[in-house]
Write a protein that binds this DNA or RNA. Structure first.
Lengths: 182, 182
DNA sequence: TTTCGCATGTAATGAGTTACATGATTTT
DNA sequence: AAAATCATGTAACTCATTACATGCGAAA
C-alpha cells in the first residue's frame, strides 16, 4: 500500500523516469524498499491518472524516449498527509527460519551449507553499504547536510546485515554442536 | 509461496486445527512468519485437495467441531523436497524508513514521536521473546533437546528487536541534533 | 555474437488484506 | 452488557511476482 508513497518520496527530491526510479530503488533505498519495474511503471500510471504526478516526454536521439515524472501539488499534499499517519513495522516472512525451525528433519550439512550461502549474501550487502557509508563519511559537514537522513536509513541497513551475520554465527555453532551429537 | 511449507512444518511436529495453527503462528513463530486466519484456512483447503494433508473431524460438545489436520506421506515428501531447494532472504518494505528518508519534509517532533512509538513496540516484543527465552533456559539439558532449533529461531527474534532498538536510539540522537539546528 | 544498459510496457497468476458472516461460551 | 475465546469459512480487492514483449546502441 505504501509503494506509491515510496515513489512519491523519491520523486519529491528527484524528478525522473520509471527507469531512474528503479535504479534509485536498487542503489539508494533497496535495503528498506523493494519493487520490480513492472510494479513501478504500473503505479506511476495510476498516480498519473489520479493526478498525483505528471510527466514530460524527453526525446533523445538514439535512446528511447523518457517520461520524466514529477510531483503535482496534489501529490505533495497526499504525501504530506500520509506522513502524518502512523505506519506499522513490516511483517516478516522468512523461509530460511522455517527451515531451521524444522531442521531436525533436514540433513545438518545441508542446512549449514545454506546458512553459509546466506552469510555470503549478507557479507556482500554489508560491503556495499559500507562503501556507501565511506562516501558519506568522506564528505565535509556542509556537504553531508542533505544526506543526513538517507545516511540514517543506510545505518539501518548496516546494522541489519551485521545483526544477521551475528545470528548466522550463533546458528552455525549450535548446528555444528548438534551435528557432533552433543 | 512458502506459506504452505510453514504450515506443513508446523503440522509435521504437531497435528492440529486451523485455529491451533493460528495460535502457533502468533505465539511460536510470529517473529519470522505471519499469516492471517483467512490465509491459513484457504491454504489448508488447497493442501487438502492436493492430498498433502488430511483431517479428521473432532466433535466436541458445547464447542464448534475441529478439523484436526496432519501430514500425509505426499505432504512429508513435498516438505522434504522444498527443504532441499535454496530459499532467498525476504524482501523488506519498511514504510517507517521511507518517512525517515524524506524526513526533511516532516515536522521533526512528529517523526521523533513516531520513532518512539516504534521503540515501545519493539521493547514489548523483546520482552515477550525474553520471557520465552527464560522458559527455555530454565529447562534441563535433556528437556531442551527438542526445543534447540525453535530456540535458535527465537534468538533471531531477540537479536532483531535489540538491533532495531539500537538503531532507533541512533536515529533519535541524530534527529534531535538536527532539530536543534546543528 | 552475446550480453549489458537504456527504456517502456501488458498479461496472467499468486499472495495477502479487508470486509463480511455465524454462533455458542466464558470472562470482565 | 460488552468483550474475548473458540472455531470455521467466503468474497472482493489490492499488492507483488513471473512471464511475455520490443528494440536500439555499446561494450566484451
Amino acid at each position: 500500500m505504501s509503494l506509491r508513497f515510496a515513489i512519491l518520496t523519491l520523486l519529491e527530491s528527484d524528478p525522473g523516469s520509471g527507469y531512474d526510479l528503479m535504479r534509485h530503488f536498487k542503489a539508494g533505498i533497496g535495503h528498506f524498499w523493494n519493487a520490480s519495474h513492472q510494479q513501478v511503471y504500473q503505479e506511476l500510471g495510476k498516480l498519473n491518472s489520479e493526478g498525483l504526478v505528471e510527466f514530460e516526454v524527453e526525446h533523445q536521439s538514439e535512446r528511447p524516449d523518457r517520461k520524466v515524472y514529477r510531483l503535482t501539488p496534489p501529490g505533495q499534499s497526499a504525501l504530506a498527509e500520509w506522513r502524518l499517519q502512523p505506519v506499522r513495522p513490516p511483517k516478516v516472512n522468512d523461509a530460511l527460519l522455517v527451515k531451521v525451525y524444522g531442521g531436525l528433519n533436514v540433513p545438518p550439512a545441508q542446512l549449514l551449507a545454506e546458512l553459509e550461502e546466506h552469510a555470503v549474501l549478507h557479507r556482500e550487502r554489508l560491503e556495499e553499504y559500507r562503501a556507501s557509508e565511506a562516501r558519506f563519511l568522506a564528505m565535509t559537514p556542509e556537504e553531508r547536510v542533505p544526506y543526513r537522513l538517507p545516511y540514517l536509513t543506510l545505518r539501518r541497513g548496516i546494522l541489519y546485515e551485521q545483526d544477521w551475520l551475528r545470528w548466522l554465527d550463533e546458528a552455525r555453532v549450535e548446528l555444528e554442536q548438534m551435528a557432533a551429537g552433543s
